[in-house]
Amino acid sequence: MENWTNAKWCDVANLVLGAFLFASPWMFGFDAGAASRNAYVAGIAIAILAIAALAAFAVWEEWLNLIVGLWTLIAPWVLGFQGNRTAMTIHVVVGIAVAALAAIELWMMSQNPPRLTASG
């Protein structure tokens, strides 16, 4: 664990948030509509991006996580499930957290870009 940077901790947090979002329809009893479908799809996307970033960091993964986080944040209004207060709250909170973590990682990378090494 000596090579664990703050960026990797952000990716672990995103992995947990993605798993939580994916499991939330079962944990909180969402109906089988748009809220559940979006939780499954966005949760899987967030988790896969987090795993990819943990395996081999690339800036594009953080940009995609930012986009998925923002989508998760606005999904209750776009998909029309803002009447389901529990699903809406979970989507908004997870969306804000994922987008914020992605923005923090992007900011950290702009402050301290990874060093390129010559192989050979």
Rank of each mutant, 00 (worst) to 15 (best):
A56W: 11
A103R: 04
D11I: 00
G95E: 05
I90R: 00
T72Q: 01
E61P: 00
A118M: 07
L21N: 09
C10M: 07
A39V: 05
Q82V: 03
G69V: 06
V12Q: 07
P113F: 01
L73S: 00
M109E: 15
L66Q: 01
G80H: 05
F28I: 02
W60E: 11
A39C: 05
S36C: 05
A87M: 05
Y40Q: 04
I74Y: 06
I48E: 02
A100K: 05
A53E: 12
V93E: 07
K8H: 12
G95W: 03
D31T: 08
I46K: 04
L70V: 14
P25M: 11
D31V: 03
F81K: 02
V41P: 01
A42H: 09
A97C: 13
G33R: 09
I96D: 00
V59Y: 02
L79I: 00
A23Q: 09
M109I: 13
A42G: 01
A34F: 01
V16F: 11
W60G: 05
G83F: 08
T72F: 00
W77Q: 07
E62I: 00
E105T: 15
M1V: 13
I51L: 15
W26G: 02
A53V: 06
F28G: 03
G120F: 04
S119L: 10
M108N: 14
W26A: 10
G83M: 03
A50S: 13
I51E: 00
A23V: 10
W4T: 15
Y40R: 06
A58K: 12
E105K: 11
V16T: 10
L49R: 04
W71D: 11
L21W: 08
L54F: 08
A53T: 14
G33T: 07
A32T: 13
T86N: 02
L106M: 12
I74C: 04
M27F: 12
I51C: 12
L101E: 09
S24N: 09
A34P: 01
W107F: 15
G80M: 04
T117W: 04
V98T: 12
W26V: 03
N6P: 09
E2H: 09
A19K: 01
M108V: 10
Q82H: 09
P76C: 03
I44V: 15
G18L: 05
T117Y: 09
V93A: 14
R85I: 06
L116S: 13
V93I: 15
N38G: 05
A50N: 06
A32W: 12
